[in-house]
């Protein structure tokens, strides 16, 4: 965990430093050669896009690849899971497992892969385009896309929680008074997706606490960690971009801070989207574990 934070710190902090130094460089060149100012800005944007935004692009492609492979996995594993559910008969009635929810999780991943992530990429490119050519701004467009995406993701998660509460029996041990302050803290401090994060984490938590009885705490913890690592990485990177933007605002051009800020926002939405994937992954993993356990204990 520590080493992975250090890796992110390393890559993003070095881009931090690069942005700061290069804006100093641009300041000096602007002072010496004022007639070249337009192109100094252009080269600075070039530098920022090719070097500094590399971690952001990497995250986007990472989440895209994960979504792709998980949706492939679902499509291949789904018939087997349903077949074995039918084979195991009434054993699942005990747990209020709903086959529809598995299908729903699958659908959410396909939606993510086919619609949400391409739209997010479009928002990112709109942002870059409107910064490179300020006379043709698409900033409202990309804002619209981001808010729409966030709405879609929240709707999907809300549907999940309907499924789970309709299932009844599961309740989250942590959702009591103890976790309220932490939830409030996250809600207040993570911009854009704070309340969404607490809600979806609560939903996943409610679900997995019901499964703890069957799968054991350590297994659940490891599944959680695996599923949430990409999301947490994305979240941290998004924070670093926004901090960089805040730090260089006094002396950098508005374009550069604007690009970093927009990329930060896009990464927050990407984090929200990756929660959908994490949720589906957790659900399927727990489902398979419980299935295997039921089959082995029945024999």
């Amino acid at each position: 965990m520590i080493s992975f934070v250090e890796t992110i710190l390393g890559t993003v902090l070095s881009s931090f430093v690069i942005v700061i130094i290069s804006s100093f460089m641009a300041l000096m060149v602007d002072f010496l050669f004022p007639s070249f100012a337009k192109w100094t800005r252009m080269l600075l944007i070039l530098l920022v896009i090719t070097v500094v935004l590399q971690p952001a692009f990497e995250h986007l492609t990472l989440i895209r690849d994960i979504a792709h492979s998980i949706s492939m996995m679902f499509i291949s594993i789904y018939p087997i899971l349903t077949a074995s559910m039918i084979a195991s008969g009434g054993a699942f009635g005990l747990l209020n497992f709903q086959p529809a929810m598995l299908l729903f999780a699958n659908g959410a991943i396909v939606l993510t892969e086919r619609v949400l992530i391409p739209l997010l990429t479009a928002a990112l490119i709109f942002d870059l385009a409107s910064r490179i050519l300020p006379s043709v701004p698409f900033s409202k467009m990309s804002d619209l896309i981001r808010t729409t995406l966030l709405g879609a993701v929240s709707a999907v998660v809300a549907t999940y929680s309907i499924f789970i509460t309709a299932g009844g029996t599961m309740s989250w041990a942590l959702s009591g008074l103890a976790s309220e302050p932490i939830k409030e803290l996250i809600k207040q401090n993570v911009p854009l997706i704070g309340s969404f994060m607490t809600e979806s984490l609560g939903t996943i938590g409610r679900y997995s606490s019901g499964a703890t009885i069957f799968a054991g705490g350590w297994l659940i913890t490891s599944i959680w960690t695996i599923a949430l690592v990409p999301s947490i990485k994305t979240l941290l990177t998004a924070f670093f971009y926004r901090w960089t933007a805040a730090l260089i605002e006094p002396f950098a051009q508005e374009d550069i801070t604007g690009i970093l800020d927009d990329i930060g926002k896009t990464l927050f939405v990407l984090c929200a989207v990756s929660f959908l994937i994490a949720f589906a992954f957790i659900y399927t993993a727990l489902f398979s574990i419980i299935l295997v356990k039921l089959i082995t204990t029945m024999k």
Partner: peptide
């Protein structure tokens, strides 16, 4: 500006 990735500082000052 050696700290920056290689061609950028040279490129900027050279072209300016």
């Amino acid at each position: 500006f050696e700290a920056l990735p290689d061609p950028f500082a040279k490129l900027l000052i050279g072209s300016a």
